[in-house]
Design a protein around this nucleic acid. Structure first.
Lengths: 194, 194
DNA sequence: TTATTACGAGACACCATGTCCAGTAAAGTG
DNA sequence: CACTTTACTGGACATGGTGTCTCGTAATAA
C-alpha cells in the first residue's frame, strides 16, 4: 500500500519547517517541554499537518535527528580502520550536544512503547552500532588488532562510554575522549595473533 | 533553616504511599505517562501533599529510586575487590528492569534543568560511580591489577556499557554481562607492574 | 487551650491533547 | 476547462493534567 498518486502532493517545505522547528524548540526548551502544538506554531503549520504524517512528537524528533546525523552516518572507509574509528567518534561527539538530549528523550519515551522502540532501534541505534562494529571487524581483518575481547562487548563499551557521559554529564564528550576510547579498544582487542 | 519543630509532623505513611504509588505507576504506564495527579490518586493522598514536599514528578521518582537502590548502595568490601566488583554489577543489573527506565526518564528530564541535574548527579549517579571507582582503586592497591588505562575512563566504560544496554535494549543486562565486564576491566587495567 | 503545621478533598484558570470541520490550494484526469 | 482527490492553514471542541488556593480536620508542642 503505497501513498496514492492522486491529489495534492505532500508539501516538502512544510515537512522541513516541522523538523527544523522541532529541533529549534528542543534546543531552546528541552525535550520534555516540546509539544506538538508548539512545533506547529513555531513552524507556521496547521496542527493537523503534523498529526497526518507523525503519530507523536517522538516520531517527529526521531526523523529530525536521523536527518541531522546523516552526514556522519555513511562515511567512506579510508584504508585505516583505526583512523575511521576515531573519525566516527569525533563526528558523533560533535553532534552530541544537540543529538544527545534528543536521543535521551526518545529512549525514555520508548521504554513503554514497544513499536516505537523497534523503530528507534532499527532506524537509529542499530545503524550507529553497526558503524562501529564494522569498523572494528575491518581492523581485525586487516590484522591491526587481535580478537582478545568479544566484538559485541567492545562495541557496547565504545558507545556506552559516550552515552554515559552524554547523559550523566560529569565529564566532557570531546576529542580527548575519542582518542582515549580508541586506545582502550586497542587494549581490549589486543595485539594480533594473541 | 531546618524544618520547624512546631505543628503537626510530616506523615511518614503518606510519604511511603507516594513513593510506592509512583514506582507502581512507572512500572505500569512508563515514566512519561506518570502524572502527579495520578500518583496522588493511586496513593490515596491529597495532591497538595505532594506539591508540599516535592517540586516535580522527577523529584518524587528520584527519591523513590534512591530508596530502591539503598540495599546495594553500601556494600561492605570483602577481601576480594574483583569479587566485590562482580557483586556490585550483578546487584545493579538485577535492579535495572525497574530502575533503568526511571533513571532514563530522570536523565531526560534533567537535560534542561540544571538544578535537578546537579541533584541527580550528587545523590545518585556520582554515588554509583564512586562505588565502582573505589572498588577498582582497592584492586589496584591490593596489587590485583595494574594501571594500564586511566581509572576514570574504565569506570565510565563499566557503567556506560550497562547503560547502553539498558537504554537501547538490543541485548540483555544479566550476570553474563557482569562477568564479561569484569574480565574486560582486567584487560584494560592490565597485569600488575605493567 | 492555643498556636502551628500537615492532611484529604475539591474548586479554579490555564494549557496541551487529539479529533473534527471548514475553506482553500495543488496536483492529475476527462 | 471543470472535476476529483488529497494536502494545507485555521479554528472549534471535549478531555485531562498543571499548579495554586481554600476548606474543614488532625496532630503535635507550648
Amino acid at each position: 500500500m503505497e501513498t496514492s498518486i492522486l491529489g495534492r502532493p505532500r508539501s516538502e517545505p512544510a515537512r522541513r519547517a516541522v523538523l527544523d522547528a522541532a529541533l529549534r524548540l528542543v534546543r531552546r526548551d528541552g525535550y520534555q517541554a516540546v509539544t506538538i502544538k508548539g512545533i506547529a506554531e513555531e513552524a507556521g503549520v496547521g496542527r493537523q499537518t503534523i498529526y497526518r504524517w507523525w503519530t507523536s512528537k517522538a516520531e517527529v524528533l526521531l526523523e529530525a535527528v536521523i536527518e541531522l546525523a546523516r552526514p556522519i552516518a555513511q562515511p567512506e572507509p579510508t584504508g585505516d580502520p583505526l583512523h575511521d574509528l576515531r573519525q566516527i567518534l569525533r563526528g558523533s561527539f560533535r553532534l552530541s550536544p544537540v543529538a544527545g538530549p534528543i536521543i535521551s528523550g526518545l529512549m525514555a519515551d520508548a521504554t513503554n512503547d514497544p513499536e516505537f522502540l523497534a523503530k528507534l532501534q532499527s532506524e537509529l541505534l542499530a545503524r550507529r552500532r553497526a558503524l562501529i562494529r564494522e569498523t572494528l571487524e575491518r581492523a581485525q581483518r586487516d590484522g591491526l588488532v587481535g580478537a582478545g575481547t568479544a566484538l559485541d562487548l567492545v562495541t557496547d563499551m565504545v558507545w556506552g562510554t559516550m552515552w554515559y557521559r552524554v547523559l550523566s554529564r560529569h565529564a566532557p564528550v570531546d576529542e580527548t575522549l575519542a582518542d582515549q576510547v580508541t586506545e582502550a579498544v586497542l587494549t581490549l582487542l589486543g595485539p594480533v595473533g594473541k
